[in-house]
Write a protein that binds this DNA or RNA. Structure first.
Length: 890
RNA sequence: GCCGAUGUGGCGAAAUGGCAGACGCAACGGACUUAAAAUCCGUUGGGCUUAAACGGCCCGUGCCGGUUCGAGUCCGGCCAUCGGCACCA
């Protein structure tokens, strides 16, 4: 025994029950058609964001969401659901590779050790995962299917007519490679010369490498891209029907960044399109720009191209060539940070060339400036200084003309310079007098008619840079022959990486896999792709694999997918009357899908809990893959995650973010050693609302631990020998009316609070329950049994043990969640609040459902009321049945 | 700058428009004990009134206004903190 006396023997009973659960496969969820599958039960899929198993192990922040989902999973099982509650490992990625470079230990070895450590920690907390479904993204049996899905994406294109992904075979154009959803492009990447490698955006912080702090520059390289932008609108629209936090939807919408406007063509002076001068060789005919304000076209007094825009070479005139080249070199040397620093002054140079404003045929100068980005729109803008803050700053600095074309309400045209909101068009012959909306519509019609432009939509979202120059990731199932890429056949999957000894970056930007000369050589005239996939790949579909983790013929079996992800094809036929239960489908199916959530929802997973840090990357990428698979008929729902909740971060006791740096990291196992897993779980939930950020407090754990000890002593007493026996106070008697009331009130409150994920208040209510019973001499066993079941999802070990000690039948995990009877909650008499002018002056006991008249009479007879209304005129009496009466006097 | 979230005791927090601070922590007092720990019981937002107690009164949910018989809660405007995006045309 520890120096410290345990308040109750959790150190013995917790491992005992964990073993029992393992041995009896208590939380194994059979699939449809498997042994013990009960098709009459509804399904519930509750998922955690699976962790990256780092060397440091879990800290107390990780299990917060895991505890919440575990409570839900255990609750839903008691409620009679088939619950899918799995766990796995997102184990490809940088840290393991970095560690390998440092120590020479193979990433597979570190991964195995780290997984073992994480799993031991999770098991000690007593989570009810179905460990038979455990998966690992680095397992060839898993990434075989990651590669398989990649091939599906590679072999698909986005048909703009149907707005769907379709097999590439339906594409009728010349060059299928130009439309594939996975394609190769030369794109600027984050190249870190010091590390000799390319970095992902998230590995670059303030223009420097996260590892080592070395400078990072932009450099074009051949990369694999996924055409996520084709799905921008569907990713945007799909958000509406999801039960996600509004703030999270806002983050995704913001990230996708849809802007409506027009693409407008400006003819270049001196080109063949423009007859005011003799055509010059090499000068482009026109420059296209994107604008959200086509209504301000008459105010476009200059143009700006991004310095990197390839048109610049041809546009720059002889006498400006030098200045342009200097400026471009200057910009290229800048880091991303310097370039996007808002505080800095606008810079730019004139190219010497001119364009014509298509609206009024004015000659306007063409500049280059780094405030225009190559990566957005067309890499060129029309400068409308009068109605855009950035353009105005630029125009003032370089003395360009400013023409107001929108009049602000109540202002003169001159005063309207700098006004960026809606107003009335002026100085715009075609548009004068129109409000913004009408002006926009009219100018676009005019542009389309004249062939100068068209309506257009642009997105901030870029295609997904999908290749990494890394060792520890999924190899691409692609070979190169005569400079062209082609897919491996599915028969050749999984494609395993070569067993490299040296994972170090090559220094040239070539991936480490290039070092495996034998592996690369695919055939006489074909070589393997040497890039690997990013860490996000494995997490894009792991929730599907959990439905059917050992299937070796498909990435997920059709039937398990339809069952756990909830089916969709007959969704449309469902009526409200059918609500929770789905009708028998075609008959080929061995199960009914009974829904836990309202059936017409697009998402398959009933509840997904994880950190907000995945708001835009993982959650967007996974939705994208899911939509491709949905279009290709591989999955049954258009969205993966119906209800999503972000748990808040847990801070250290010092209110700072937990980190090694502050020395405030808390290991769950240290807490469990002292207070036990049940106390740990309950404290995690008692701290405050799940979504909120909140600091850890060991004193708080102690308080919750005291609560559990009181639960224990409510039913157990310690004998002379120091052993715990069933307390004599626990008797098979009818609970009193008051006891019955608090029992039912507790069941009601806990049920409702679990449904709304308000675990902290559920625990408060259970504390109130225990406090009430601590004072009684006879403890009715029936009330205790009921209580143990509602406490079970929170504190599964102690409740299992007490259930057994009370000589109850069966295991507590097989019980049915208790119902509550509203009738038992109401009393014959209610307390009514008596107010005068909205201030509480007294309370009165009065019979339930007393009429307004009865209550009013009683109120006026009340001594305290009389004190306050004497010499005053009663104006009205407000009556709320069973609640309050308010006498308003003057 | 834009978008979003949050502001309630000494602390973590509760509160369908109807008793602000449930529950827990900390603190203080008491019981038990030779003593301590543990446990149990009680007090605990601020001010005023009172010899004290009881009782009573006033104020109090970031700030200012509004709606309402009644506002922590609804509406408008500010301020502060945190998070995301950021020259996105």
């Amino acid at each position: 025994m520890n120096e410290r006396r345990k308040p109750y023997p959790f150190d013995r009973l917790e491992p005992k029950w964990q073993t029992v659960w393992d041995e009896t496969r208590a939380f194994h969820a059979p699939n449809p058609g498997e042994e013990n599958f009960d098709s009459k039960k509804p399904k519930y899929y509750v998922l955690d964001m699976f962790p990256y198993p780092s060397g440091a192990g879990l800290h107390v922040g990780h299990p917060e969401g895991y505890t919440a989902t575990d409570i839900i999973a255990r609750y839903k099982r008691l409620k009679g659901f088939n619950v899918l509650h799995p766990m796995g490992w997102d184990a490809f990625g940088l840290p393991a590779e970095q560690y390998a470079i440092k120590t020479g230990q193979h990433p597979a070895v570190t991964t195995r050790d780290n997984v073992a450590k994480f799993k031991a920690q999770l098991k000690r907390i007593g989570f009810s995962y179905d460990w038979e479904r455990e998966l690992n993204t680095t397992d060839p049996a898993y990434y075989k299917w990651t590669q398989w899905i990649f091939l599906r994406i590679y072999n698909s294109w986005f048909n703009p007519e149907t707005k769907k992904a379709e097999p590439i075979s339906t594409y009728r154009g010349e060059d299928p490679d130009s439309v594939r959803l996975a394609y190769v492009a030369e794109v600027p990447v984050n190249w870190c010369p010091e590390l000799g490698t390319v970095l992902a955006n998230e590995e670059v912080i303030d223009g420097k490498s996260e590892v080592g702090g070395f400078p990072v520059v932009r450099r074009p390289m051949r990369q694999w891209m996924l055409r996520i932008t084709a799905f921008a609108d569907r990713l945007l629209d799909g958000l509406d029907a999801l039960d996600w936090p509004l703030s999270l939807k806002a983050l995704q919408r913001n990230w996708i960044g849809r802007s409506e406007g027009a693409e407008i063509e400006f003819p270049v002076v001196g080109s063949s399109r423009c007859d005011d001068r003799t055509p010059q060789h090499g000068v482009p005919t026109s420059i296209r720009v994107f604008t959200t304000r086509p209504d301000t076209l008459y105010g476009a007094t200059y143009m700006v191209l991004a310095p990197e825009n390839p048109l610049v070479d041809e546009l720059a005139t002889e006498d400006h060539r030098r200045a342009v080249a200097d400026y471009r070199a200057q910009v290229a040397a800048k880091s991303d940070l310097e370039r996007t620093d808002l505080a800095k002054e606008k810079t730019g140079v004139f190219t010497g060339a001119f364009a014509l404003n298509p609206a009024n045929d004015e000659r306007i100068p063409i500049w280059i400036a780094d405030y225009v980005l190559m990566g957005y729109g067309t890499g060129a803008i029309m400068g409308v200084p009068a109605h855009d803050a950035r353009d105005l700053e630029f125009a003032r600095k370089f003395d360009l003309s400013v023409v107001p074309v929108v009049q602000a309400p109540g202002k003169t045209p001159e005063e309207s310079v700098g006004y960026v909101n809606d107003g009335i068009a002026i100085n715009s012959p075609l548009l004068n007098g129109l409000v913004r909306e009408a002006a926009t519509a009219k100018i676009i019609d005019w542009l389309e008619e004249k062939g100068h432009g068209r309506r257009d939509v642009r997105y901030k979202l870029r295609d997904w840079l999908f290749s990494r120059q890394r060792y520890w990731g999924e190899p691409f199932p692609i070979v190169w022959r005569d400079g062209k890429h082609e897919a491996l056949s599915e028969m050749e999957l999984p494609l395993e990486p070569p067993p490299l000894e040296d994972f170090k970056p090559t220094g040239t930007g070539e991936p480490p896999l290039a070092k495996a000369k034998d592996w690369i050589r695919y055939s006489e005239n074909a070589t393997r792709e040497t890039n690997t996939m990013p860490q996000w790949a494995g997490s894009c579909w792991y929730y599907l694999r959990f439905c059917d983790p050992t299937n070796d013929r498909r990435f997920v079996g059709e039937e398990p997918e339809r069952y756990w992800m909830g089916g969709s094809n007959d969704e449309a036929r469902m009526t409200n009357a059918e609500k929770m239960t789905k009708p028998e489908s075609s008959g080929t199916s061995s199960f009914d899908i009974r829904h836990s959530s309202f059936p017409a929802k697009p998402g398959g997973i009933d509840l997904y809990i994880g950190g907000v840090e995945h708001a835009v990357l993982h959650l967007l990428y996974a939705r994208f893959w899911h939509k491709v698979l949905f279009d290709l008929g591989q999955v049954s729902k258009p969205e993966p995650f119906q209800r999503l909740v972000n748990q808040g971060m847990i801070l250290g006791e010092d209110n700072r973010k937990m980190s090694k740096r502050w020395g405030n990291v808390i290991d769950p196992l240290d807490v469990i050693e002292i207070y036990g897993a049940d106390a740990f779980r309950c404290y995690e939930m008692f701290m405050g609302p799940l979504e909120q950020m909140k600091p850890w407090s060991m004193k708080g754990v102690e308080g919750v631990s005291r609560f559990l000890a009181r639960v224990w002593r409510l039913m157990m007493t310690e004998n002379q020998a120091g052993e715990w026996d069933l307390s004599a106070a626990v008797q098979d008697v009818e609970p009193t009316k008051a006891q019955q009331k608090i029992t039912h009130a507790t069941v009601k409150k806990v049920t409702e609070d679990i449904e709304s994920l308000s675990f902290n208040t559920a625990i408060s209510q259970m504390m109130i329950f225990v406090n009430a019973f601590t004072k009684t001499e006879v403890v009715p066993i029936s009330a205790m049994r009921t209580f143990l079941v509602v406490l079970n999802p929170f504190a599964p070990h102690i409740t299992s043990e007490l259930w057994e000690r009370l000589n109850s039948t069966g295991n507590i995990t097989d019980q049915t969640w208790p119902a509550y009877d509203e009738k038992l909650l109401v009393e014959d008499e209610v307390e009514i609040i008596v107010q005068v002018n909205g201030k509480v002056r007294d309370r009165m006991k009065i019979s339930l459902d007393a009429t307004e008249e009865e209550v009013t009479v009683a109120a006026f007879a009340n001594f305290r009321v009389q004190q306050f209304i004497v010499h005053k005129k009663v104006q009205r009496v407000v009556f709320v049945p069973n609640r309050l009466v308010n006498v308003v006097v003057k």
